[in-house]
Structures are given as structure tokens and as C-alpha cells.
Design a binder for these strands. Structure first.
Lengths: 205, 205
DNA sequence: TTTTCGCTCCCCCATACGGGGCAGGCGGCG
DNA sequence: CGCCGCCTGCCCCGTATGGGGGAGCGAAAA
């Protein structure tokens, strides 16, 4: 029985690439596609695929939320996360959300097909690339929820005073959060903190 | 004689999608692929394709630079820009660099095939989506080369003083550039300027 | 040629920022 | 129970930031 695969990505072209690739393999079959997190939940329910290829960057419900939703219904679901960047925090969150593998879109065909088979057999596969990134920034990634909230407001161009007002806290408290953020990310200033946060997936674009 | 096509994208999977798509069409043939701007210049020289599908976001030489380099050698080259976002500034620069069309990766197969044929016939095709974005931010996008350079250094977490040192100019000059940047982008502060610059494709990630 | 534009530099000055240190309250966890 | 992490608040203080002007100079466009 061939491996039933669901492919989730908002790029139609990329889905066609996957489809073409899988069509050449006799031991796999693409049972459905989805262009969004929400769609993926429905399609999973309908087709119960063995392996789900899941993009992380999508509008609306993103890949991680979709994975969590699907695993809520089907705890045995196996995911391969498909993404452009090796963003550390996203990778960590994805793995935590139940991803069996984390592959970059630049990977070539045989890697991906091999990964699909491995995952179907219950193996986990992490790109050395990604693993290295994960190891590199382990300590720093631990921004607290409040700090992330502050960083997001900083990115939007708010001053400490405005952030304090928005969060109903004292400006001094905001400054304390900022100090901690700068220290944790090893950033030179608030601007640097934002770019690092973006690169590492701490905050979204 | 089929339309000779070159596909340039750093995502192998997406290239396979294009390849699969084109393989189904009798009036087109994919003569080469490239995963970087530099490669694309070589491949173009070798194969002299009729139409080149060019991604904008690539490491090293980006799509726009590659297009300029190729048109330097082959002024008649026809490009279809292939991208994820409808980032205004990038779109403008791409069109200026000689793009005949600007299509989003989420587009479906028949649109892309139709666009390839149109471009091959010398027509230009701009997504309404993209055209709208272009019209929206026309005035603001005009950061000068120097200002872009400054903004990039700001994004990296440099202070005005350090930027001045790096660019061998006076700190006061850097401050003048900053003032102009903030005014043009209508940003609250340097951090906001960076996020806006990223969103609009003025500076890269 | 005149004008415009980009790059350069300078002044003043109010305020925001960031580093340092300190501390109370609160919830979870060993 | 006691410790620790998170959120909260506060002080001092040096420096960076950004807003407001003005101005020269060379190149490119009108």
C-alpha cells in the first residue's frame, strides 16, 4: 500500500513540484493538497494521510497551529515541515508541535523522497543545517511572553512610553523588559533586537 | 519551434513544479535551470532562452542584479519575475530592470502558462494585485542609494556614530540621512524605519 | 545656463534610550 | 517549605536620538 501524502503550502507552484515528484514514485501517492492551515485540517480529516508535508509560512492559520489542531484529532499524525528558512525558533516550535522532520525548500528531490519514507517508518530526520542552527541559539531564544509582546510593539515603531501605555504598565517596567530583551538576544539596540527577532522567528513579519 | 524557457529559483522544489508544468505543454520546453543569479547568467549565455522565469529573493546575486547583468549582454531578454510577495519597491525595480511580467508564486498553472505565452509574444502582464501595490506607495519608495546603505546598517544594529565611521562620513551627515529616511518612510523611529523597509523590500532580510 | 537633487557638514536642544543596580509580589516546582 | 523565574516598579546618569533650522558643492536634468 502506497504512502498516503497530504501537501500543504500556499504556493501552488511548489505543490505542483511536490505532486510531480511524488507521481514518479510507485510507493507514494498524493491524496490531497491544501493551500492554508484551515484547509489542511479539513483535508487531513477527509483523507487521513500517512505523512503530511506542511509549510510554516502561511496566511491565517499557520503551519504550527495547523499541526497542533490536527494532532489534537489525530495524535499519530506525522509531519514533515517544509520551509524556506532555517529559523531557529520556528524550527523548535515546529518540532515541539510534533514535526518528524524539518526540511528546507532548497533541498533536492532524493532528499525529500528519502525523508518521506523515513518519516513514514517512524524515524525522525533533522537537517544538519537546522540542527546546527538549533544548537547555536538555544539559550537566547527564551524570551518570555511579555518580552515578545514588547518586542512586537518595538518593531511597530512604538516608544517605551507608548508601549507602557498600550500594556498598562509603567514605562520603567517597559525599560526593564527592553534591557532583558537586549541582553538575551545580545542586541546592540532595539532596532538590532527587532531584526534578530525577525531572523530567528521570535516575532513575525 | 517551442518556447525556450530558463527557470531561476533557489528552491529546487519550485523549479520541479515549473518543470513538471512545462513538460505538459507541447509549445514550451525548459532548456535550463539555475539556483542563483550568478548561475542564471551563465545558463542564459549558454542556452539563449526566449523567456526567463526569475525569482527575486536569492542569496548572493539577486534576481534584479541578474536581470541587469543578462540584459547587458542580451538586451532582448524577456523576464517574468516570480516572487512570493507583492513587495512594492522590488516590483518597481524589477519592472525597471526589464521584467515583462510580475507573478506571485501562489498563482495557478493556467495563469502562469498564459503569461509565458503572452510574454513570448512581446506582451507585458502585470498582476492587478501588484499594480495596486505599486500605485499605493509611489512617493515614499524613493530612498537614495546612500540612504538605503544607511538603513541597512541601522538594521544591523549600528549607531549613527558607527555608521558614520563605516561610511567614512561625519556623524552629523548620518543624522541627516536618518532624518530623511524617517520622513520618506513616515516612520516613528529608526526601528520602525527598518521594519517598513523590510516590508517594502527596500532592504533585504 | 539655471535649477534641481543627492551628499555632505554644522548648530541648538528636548527627550528617548540603555546600562547599572535594587526590590517586592506571585506562582510553580523541587 | 524555600528557591527561582516572571512581571512589576524605582533610582541615577551618560549618551544617542530625532526635530528644527541653515549651507556648500558637484552632477545631472531641464
Amino acid at each position: 500500500m502506497p504512502i498516503k501524502i497530504l501537501c500543504v503550502d500556499d504556493h501552488a507552484l511548489l505543490r505542483e513540484g511536490i505532486a510531480a515528484l511524488i507521481a514518479t514514485q510507485s510507493d507514494m501517492t498524493l491524496v490531497a493538497e491544501a493551500a492554508s492551515g484551515r484547509e489542511s485540517v479539513e483535508q487531513f480529516r477527509l483523507h487521513q494521510p500517512d505523512v503530511t508535508l506542511m509549510d510554516l509560512q502561511m496566511d491565517g492559520m499557520n503551519g504550527i497551529e495547523a499541526m497542533i489542531a490536527i494532532r489534537g484529532e489525530s495524535p499519530g499524525a506525522k509531519f514533515i515541515v517544509l520551509t524556506t528558512y532555517a529559523g531557529d525558533v520556528l524550527a523548535q516550535r515546529a518540532l515541539k508541535a510534533g514535526a518528524y522532520a524539518y526540511v528546507l525548500k532548497g533541498m533536492i528531490r532524493k532528499d525529500i523522497l528519502g525523508t518521506i519514507r523515513d518519516v513514514h517508518n517512524g524515524l525522525k530526520r533533522i537537517e544538519p543545517h537546522v540542527a546546527a542552527e538549533l544548537a547555536k541559539h538555544q539559550a537566547d531564544a527564551s524570551l518570555t511572553p511579555r518580552e515578545i509582546e514588547v518586542l512586537r510593539l518595538v518593531a511597530a515603531g512604538n516608544s517605551n512610553k507608548l508601549i507602557a501605555a498600550r500594556l498598562n504598565i509603567n514605562e520603567e517596567t517597559t525599560k526593564t523588559h527592553m534591557k532583558n530583551i537586549l541582553a538575551k538576544l545580545e542586541a546592540n539596540d532595539r532596532t538590532h533586537a527587532v531584526t534578530l527577532g525577525l531572523q530567528r522567528g521570535v516575532i513575525g513579519v
